[in-house]
């Protein structure tokens, strides 16, 4: 069982490292998109799958990261990596403030609150012209250079170079989440998801833990958003719109909400399905709607959940 897992992670790592060798801009660009969505979905799932809170406002934190990183790159001499981290920290801080209010409610009321706050971010991005550029957004964000010890400034203009940076940041982010969910803190979050009342009777200050999860989840979502600003060289307010929260929701459900790797696998499937549908028809939302229907009605464990419940035991029997 352990061996299978190592084979999976090793293969994934090798494949990810080799993608730029194809030399195809299209594949590298697509791979960056998958990585960004994977990290975004992992951040979202920290709150949904692990803590049991469904947020419809995460596009707001993703956008906060993107805008903050973009502004840092445009208006300050900060380097690329510092700007991306700065964007994530801003999103995390915003999440701590917004979360302070949101964790006062649960279930549908929580979903509505996150929706309202997420849309406030959207409204702010839209209306605060002097800072955010209004409906045009930020235009002409430089990608800048990366400062590496010993090497000095490394140019990131080439897409493959930026790909490796995104890969490194995503890997670090996933690593952090892995440690967190397997720590006592992560166990407490799952306990709150399973049984809020019992968790309180285990001595857990439930709200404070939910707030911490909310802030961390916002930080990770912001980190994902911050990587997009220097990639696209532009950020528009539409990234903050609530309908953009659909992507991490779909990726998470596709992969499986109660498994660690689910959201990452889901992010890959998300783009594979999108590419596939787009070759047949321009109406890929319709396709995703149908996929979401099937997932909710029949496969709430997602692909990884299905694998762990049905396929892995079969493989295990066969090879042992």
């Amino acid at each position: 069982m352990l061996a299978l897992r190592w084979i999976f992670w090793l293969t994934a790592a090798v494949l990810l490292l080799c993608i730029p060798l194809t030399g195809e801009r299209f594949y590298i660009y697509l791979a960056i998109q998958v990585l960004v969505l994977a990290l975004f979905a992992m951040g979202f799932n920290l709150l949904f799958g692990y803590t049991g809170l469904l947020s419809f406002g995460h596009a707001g934190f993703y956008a906060a990261g993107a805008y903050a990183a973009g502004l840092l790159l445009m208006r300050t001499p900060l380097s690329l990596l510092s700007s991306i981290l700065g964007g994530a920290l801003f999103a995390g801080a915003l999440g701590a403030v917004i979360g302070f209010f949101c964790v006062r409610r649960t279930r549908i009321y929580f979903a509505m609150l996150t929706l309202a706050f997420g849309m406030m971010v959207y409204a702010l991005a839209f209306d605060w012209r002097s800072v955010t550029g209004g409906d045009d957004g930020l235009i002409g964000i430089p990608r800048g250079a990366l400062w590496l010890p010993g090497l000095g400034a490394v140019k990131m203009d080439a897409l493959w170079a930026y790909y490796y940076l995104v890969l490194a940041i995503t890997a670090a982010g996933v690593g952090v989440i892995h440690r967190v969910v397997h720590s006592p803190f992560g166990l407490v979050l799952q306990g709150i998801r399973e049984n809020e009342n019992r968790a309180a009777f285990a001595g857990v200050p439930v709200r404070r833990y939910r707030l911490a999860a909310f802030a961390l989840s916002s930080f990770i979502s912001g980190l994902a958003g911050a990587m997009v600003a220097p990639l696209e060289n532009t950020v528009a307010p539409t990234v903050a719109h609530w309908t953009k929260s659909a992507a991490p929701v779909l990726a998470t459900l596709l992969g499986g909400i109660h498994t660690f790797s689910g959201p990452m696998v889901g992010a890959l499937l998300f783009y594979l399905i999108q590419e596939f549908i787009e070759r047949l028809t321009e109406y890929w939302l319709l396709g995703f709607g149908l996929v979401l229907l099937i997932l909710v009605l029949g496969f709430r464990g997602g692909v990884v959940g299905y694998y762990e419940a049905h396929l892995r035991p079969a493989l295990w029997r066969r090879f042992s």
Partner: peptide, 15 residues
């Protein structure tokens, strides 16, 4: 999941 199911219909109706 009820929210997510009705959310699926937004995508379907939109397209």
């Amino acid at each position: 999941y009820q929210l997510l199911l009705t959310f699926a219909f937004i995508l379907i109706f939109a397209d």
